[in-house]
Design a protein around this nucleic acid. Sequence first.
DNA 1: CGTAACGTTGAATCGGCTCAATAGATGTGG
DNA 2: CCACATCTATTGAGCCGATTCAACGTTACG
Lengths: 253, 253
Amino acid sequence: MLQPSSACVGCAPDGLSPELRQRVAACTACDARVLSLCRAIPDDHLDRLAAISVAVDVGPGGTFIEEGEPASSFFNITRGTVKLYKLLPDGRRQITGFLGVGDFLGLAVSDSYVFTAEALDAVRVCRFPRRRLNEVLDDFPALERKLLEIASHELVAAQEQMLLLGRKTALERLASFLLSRADRADALGRRGIPLAMTRTDIADYLGLTIETVSRLMSRLRRERVIALPEAHGFAVLDRPALLQYSGGEGPVL
Amino acid sequence: MLQPSSACVGCAPDGLSPELRQRVAACTACDARVLSLCRAIPDDHLDRLAAISVAVDVGPGGTFIEEGEPASSFFNITRGTVKLYKLLPDGRRQITGFLGVGDFLGLAVSDSYVFTAEALDAVRVCRFPRRRLNEVLDDFPALERKLLEIASHELVAAQEQMLLLGRKTALERLASFLLSRADRADALGRRGIPLAMTRTDIADYLGLTIETVSRLMSRLRRERVIALPEAHGFAVLDRPALLQYSGGEGPVL
DNA sequence: CGTAACGTTGAATCGGCTCAATAGATGTGG
DNA sequence: CCACATCTATTGAGCCGATTCAACGTTACG
């Protein structure tokens, strides 16, 4: 937790404190700016967000949201990768998503978080107090629309994942997962595709065991569909085959 | 499809056409009013919504949203029950949710729907053209906030369902499902709990086969955990047992 | 009624899991 | 730099929960 807020919140834009001025600069230069909800706020009002946000660093394995805890903050990821998961009392785990730079977290309805958020690697997040962000939302409807857009996107992804978990075979699940990671990496202009998560994480995301994931990875490598040059990462050798295995793009209409 | 819109959209509230006046009255009296997003709009501006909405009746088995079709409208359910599902090319189906009176549909990000919506029984929906509703949203931020709230709720439910589909056993899935239906019915003040959906629907919702659902229903009846007085419907005899079987309420914190 | 759709029950099969052993990767201190 | 411990990943053998296949009841409805 860095820099607990001590800025003059009610200040006019031209009367910014030095600290706040610095934070606005940080926001302006932020890697996640163009990707995330901050994009929805005009540059000259960025101080409103800067004034209520705090940058927080989280090390690998660190949790910054815990299921059941009071939901006091929203988060925006500006560095690293995060996994979200839910647990059953006996320890069974379901990872509901992996989030990266620009992604937003904390849209809980109740006053408690319904999932845990854990850093996969070195993560930095922007933390917004729930109440304060709501105030900003009142003044910038565009921000609210952006949030709605984000929530809708997540809903679509969640429905796709339900189809995967409920109806796809193990091979189809893994192929779908690898494809989605590959597409994501392509969008970022990569060739070799990094996997920040472990086999256990992949298994808990796909509703499988690590053994099954490992076996199928080996099978796809044996069949020259993918290559596994490094421990954490892969490359797609035969995209059509992967697409075939993935169970396709939904119904042909 | 009833009454294609021919109302004077720009009219002042006091200059309503007879037809629009009638629609506003229908909105005011609507069963879903208190439950749904319309609640977020003040009574004296209800004409804005009434002017752009059209009531549509859908018979059992009728689909009013189809996966892949252009997403031109939002819907609000005012009568009956609806199932949402996604299909794989070979016909495997995953039902992603059941919606009832007051529920809202059509929050698609892309310009195509990503699921199909089918009526389980006699359904009536309020249809809002996407573009027109967005205009109303601009004038009533409270509506937008309501939509965000709805989307957040659905996201929470989707995550819970991912845990169910990815990590729960067949018995746990069925018990969880029956409990959630029971809770929903209790909230509406019922004793015997109706199931508008068939065994096939339940199976496709829980990621199981109809045979497994049927066997487990029989087992729970044999164990006096539930009763099955009618074909479509059940009663909870031993709620603690059902809760036990359901895999519990998440981690004990 | 008759018939078609829905639901139940049984027997056999199989995909993915459990259990177990080994190999590789990563990190630490001598 | 190597020895060692630990964590992660791979591979095999056997098992089990849920599915598949099949037969039979039951319900809804023209």
